[in-house]
């Protein structure tokens, strides 16, 4: 069976920069695949090559076995696209936006209208369908664009930073929405993001990209494990005796114990599994826990590990334009 997305040594050079530099990977059908990287990493450029919006300089990409350069029209019928910039028409209603977009795909009227109703329901905009998109919030507009990307029932949905610029609630709504759609339709989702938590929450596998190259590719949990970090359980214990310490140290998943001021820090492989056992053990030894906090290791640590910088630092080097073309546009000769 063909992969949903198959990328072989793909390269995109712009006059001043190699935006995507010899990237190869495969995405399975039904998978949620994440591309995680800071501004300017080349996410949008890669996305645009896979969605037939720009041509690769070299290399190859197949969507469900179809070469994106040779068969762009057939590829476009197989994919839905939600681009980084908001691209719905502000002076049309949500319904009109979807209806016209459906016509671009030659969907017959009855089926089109049924699909629109279903999608508006799914993304929670059914009761605002007849209002101009200009009156929508950013999160609503995004959900409309996700609905629009699904109007022709594509096999693969490409989303380019769908939650950038949205507040935490709206982001959460979109995550749940994507999970729901995936469950209902077995859709393959290709998503780019620069949010660690987003990639962690949604993706089956993540490719971390930086300077146009894939730095590492694996599932979120494998990635975290691969850097050999630990979750830290920090406790304030009364009656912390050497016996307690010995008992904790004897546990298989406890890697280390340190003391800092009055606080005891226990390094474990997986805090969720370790915690109940540790609490039980301390109770048995008549200790009592006055304070407890868990510091889970995150993809942030993974990112630092593989790129040598935090994603915030990488971010700070560039400004992100939510509005506009997404990719920084170049104006030769200062045309602006």
């Amino acid at each position: 069976m063909a992969y949903a997305v198959e990328v072989k040594n793909i390269v995109k050079k712009f006059p001043s920069v190699t935006a995507v530099d010899d990237v190869s990977f495969n995405v399975d059908e039904g998978e949620i695949f994440g591309l995680l990287g800071p501004n300017g990493a080349g996410k949008t450029t890669l996305n645009r090559m896979l969605t037939c919006l720009i041509k690769p300089t070299s290399g190859q990409a197949n969507i469900r076995g179809l070469d994106v350069v040779k068969y762009p029209v057939r590829v476009r019928r197989n994919i839905g696209v939600v681009s980084q910039a908001m691209t719905s028409d502000l002076d049309l209603t949500a319904w009109e936006n979807l209806d016209i977009y459906g016509k671009y795909f030659d969907i017959p009227k009855t089926r089109r209208h049924e699909t629109i109703k279903y999608l508006l329901e799914t993304v929670g905009l059914a009761n605002r369908a007849q209002e101009l998109v200009a009156t929508y919030s950013g999160g609503m507009r995004r959900r409309l664009e996700i609905a629009r990307g699904l109007i022709h029932k594509p096999y693969i949905l490409f989303l380019d930073e769908p939650t950038t610029g949205l507040d935490p609630q709206s982001r959460r709504v979109i995550w749940d929405l994507l999970n729901k759609i995936r469950k209902e339709t077995k859709l393959t989702i290709f998503i780019t993001t620069h949010y660690m938590d987003e990639a962690d929450f949604l993706c089956d596998r993540i490719a971390i990209v930086d300077y146009g190259k894939i730095v590492v590719l694996d599932s979120p949990s494998n990635l975290k494990r691969s850097i050999g970090g630990f979750d830290i359980i920090e406790m304030l214990l009364s009656n912390y005796t050497p016996e307690v310490e010995a008992s904790l140290k004897a546990m298989q998943f406890v890697k280390n114990i340190t003391k800092k001021d009055e606080y005891t820090r226990v390094y474990v492989t997986d805090a969720a599994k370790a915690m109940p056992v540790i609490i039980e053990d301390i109770k048995k030894m008549h200790g009592s826990i006055d304070y407890l906090a868990i510091q889970k290791q995150s993809l942030e640590d993974v990112f630092i590990h593989y790129t040598g910088k935090t994603i915030r630092e990488a971010e700070a080097q560039k400004t992100n334009f939510i509005l506009g073309a997404g990719a920084p546009r170049q104006f030769p000769g200062g045309r602006l």
Partner: peptide, 14 residues
């Protein structure tokens, strides 16, 4: 200019 054309360029429109 507004970057909206991206939306219809990724459809089968010729």
């Amino acid at each position: 200019f507004l970057g909206i054309h991206e939306s219809y360029l990724s459809t089968p429109l010729t």
